[in-house]
Design a protein around this nucleic acid. Sequence first.
DNA 1: CCAAGCCATAGCATTGATGCTATAACCGCC
DNA 2: GGCGGTTATAGCATCAATGCTATGGCTTGG
Lengths: 99, 99
Amino acid sequence: MSDRVDWNDLRERRMAEPGVAEAYEAARIAFELGQEVRHLRERNGWSQSQLAGAAGMTQSAIARFEAGGTVPTLAVLERLARALDRKLDVRFAPRADAA
Amino acid sequence: MSDRVDWNDLRERRMAEPGVAEAYEAARIAFELGQEVRHLRERNGWSQSQLAGAAGMTQSAIARFEAGGTVPTLAVLERLARALDRKLDVRFAPRADAA
DNA sequence: CCAAGCCATAGCATTGATGCTATAACCGCC
DNA sequence: GGCGGTTATAGCATCAATGCTATGGCTTGG
């Protein structure tokens, strides 16, 4: 009990530090994009090496990205998008803050 | 005449090199995002320094980005989005290839 | 004129992503 | 067992973005 409360407490405090929540969100976005890339790749029946070849990247970079190990640059995302016949779409969407 | 044809020729050849078109597109995306950030900032009546403060960045970084001088990281984009009350949206959209 | 504000830029240090190469573990097939 | 393919990771070099600090030019108001 007490351990869990403390962990949550620590996490909240950490998240309240400037830039941390944003970095976390960026990493989350990257993670989801990595998942999406994996999904699209597998749907094509491609291995990481094949995608790497198509995107002008290395297999290790693909593996790292798909596993959420890096927050990719826009250039890398664009390369992956093209290799997967997708269009990279980046925008500042209005916030749907309801609560 | 001849100069212009040569320039276009050179450009096409350059763009056909692996990774160049993608890097160009990433820079274009960054440029547009920079324009959008400027637009939102001015709509708020903020100076670059004020936005920098709100986003935990430096005025020089804002100026550089808005002018299209850099291709920003996702973390930076997220910070700007939050400061401007926007949601950063990054996705691999299906290609609307008609032609 | 001076001060303040604004934007743009230079130069340098730091950081994180990427590429490269190598390696390891696993699996399936012959 | 050996081979090929696949994925994951390590270690290092390189690169570009970012932060920092400083500066410059311009505009405006007192």
